[in-house]
Design a protein around this nucleic acid. Structure first.
Lengths: 258, 258
DNA sequence: ATCTATTTGTACGTATGTATT
DNA sequence: AAATACATACGTACAAATAGA
């Protein structure tokens, strides 16, 4: 399950359970084990590695934390190889960026480069099911919000539009990165309260983009879709940047007290 | 340390140590603990959570596996908050894509969209140190390789050129994604033996691109740098695609036996 | 529905390693 | 060099969960 991720050597010194976890990983790969396959039970691992129960268990927890195995109790239970879920992968990567203080600009520099390409490659390849799903999604935020909570929800929904598109790409890498960015923005939106459009005009323009985008996708107009998305990203960027500035005017940024 | 990564609710049911790990995470965040800060010792955690040593230890291993803490023995030892390293993040994300069977096309669709933007934003902002580092890197593969092993090394080195560039971006997201793709390609190169250029002409053209790119970066010519990188990516794409086809002609793909 | 076998999960007590003072 | 403070490892006993008879 681990692709022998390049040089895992410079990683200083691993704890014993971590070593065991690595050994199990390579063993699993060497055995060509696949998604649902069962690993040896605790007892057998204890014997095979000549180590104590606790140590083995800690090793299994490491693999579990990485999303590589699932464990069940009972007869026929044990640990099973598990394909790392997208959800898990996003969470793990999120931990990395938690320390990085990403800005709106960072995220949008990426989005403006990627999303237009995404929709260009999608044009004409979407099922009617998905297309109407997109339209249904747009409908969610077509009426003005009544409450602040509804407003927040609408903002998150309008981001979901992009997650739906990302999900349709046959390119797992592109798909993941876009989906991840949508998550980042959702978190930012909720956490930093970046909703309540300061510029209604831009917000409505963004919605219009989405409507026109779906039309272009349905028509198989790749260049049109790309152009619309490019515009859309620019609009959203401006909108969010306005938000960020607005925030700074309202609150003194809460830095660490000590 | 965890940004309360959106809804972690749909994740079915967590094992007890995983629950504890989550609780500790949120506690750490609520306490505003930073990079080197010390967590409570084993004994104290055992008391605070009213759980056995093993359970606590497994929880710590989970956090360690995610790269969020480091543990040291000895007096003054214990567990400490640790900023997730880029290396670790790449490895964890690599596990996700291990199951996904990425193609050369998938990766290059991304690279062609991102790397030109990267160099455009870098033009004129690189120190002379970095610029000569880039030139030194190019020198590594400017002489024809003598052995097959040298050839492989040159291929990996030529990828490192991009990692150096990625490292210079102030955009942590862009930087990470490009670096990650470089890793993917390095792994692919080594694992699938995608070196030994089938097309010397293209290989040399790629090297020429890099030389001209450094010049443009030094001159602060953003548009020029972008254009060169775009060309470069197209060239590399073609080169690698040729490689992939060559591979398939030589080996029957080894699928799982049964 | 109950029992039984299987397999992981929890609990503790003890001993060993390791780094700081 | 010795004492100290901490994590690490081991082994056993028992508890909980689940599948199947």
């Amino acid at each position: 399950m681990p692709p022998a991720t390049t040089p895992s050597s410079p990683e200083v010194k691993l704890s014993r359970p971590a070593q065991v976890a690595e050994e199990i990983k390579t063993w699993v790969v060497s055995q060509r084990l696949r998604d649902g396959d069962r690993l040896p039970g605790e007892a057998e691992l204890i014997e095979r590695f000549g180590m104590a129960k606790g140590t083995i268990r800690e090793a299994m927890r490491i693999l579990e934390a990485q999303g590589l195995i699932r464990t069940r109790t009972g007869p026929g239970g044990g640990s099973f190889v598990h394909e790392v879920s997208r959800q898990r992968a996003k969470a793990l990567l999120g931990n990395y960026f938690y320390f990085k203080n990403l800005t709106i600009d960072d995220i949008y520099q990426m989005r403006v480069a990627l999303e237009p390409e995404l929709v260009a490659s999608l044009a004409g390849n979407l099922s009617e099911t998905v297309l109407s799903q997109l339209e249904a999604n747009i409908a969610e935020y077509s009426r003005p919000a009544r409450t602040l909570d509804e407003e927040r929800q609408q903002h998150v929904d309008s981001l979901r539009f992009h997650a739906i598109l990302a999900d349709q790409s046959g390119n797992a890498l592109l798909s993941f990165v876009i989906d991840f960015m949508v998550n980042l923005l959702s978190d930012l939106t909720v956490y930093r309260k970046l909703y309540s459009p300061p510029n209604i005009e831009l917000w409505e323009k963004g919605r219009d983009h989405q409507v026109r985008l779906v039309a272009a996708l349905r028509d198989g107009d790749a260049d049109g879709a790309r152009a619309i998305m490019r515009d859309h990203m620019q609009t959203a960027w401006t909108l969010m940047r306005g938000q960020e500035a607005e925030m700074l005017r309202q609150f003194i940024p809460e830095r660490r007290s000590g």
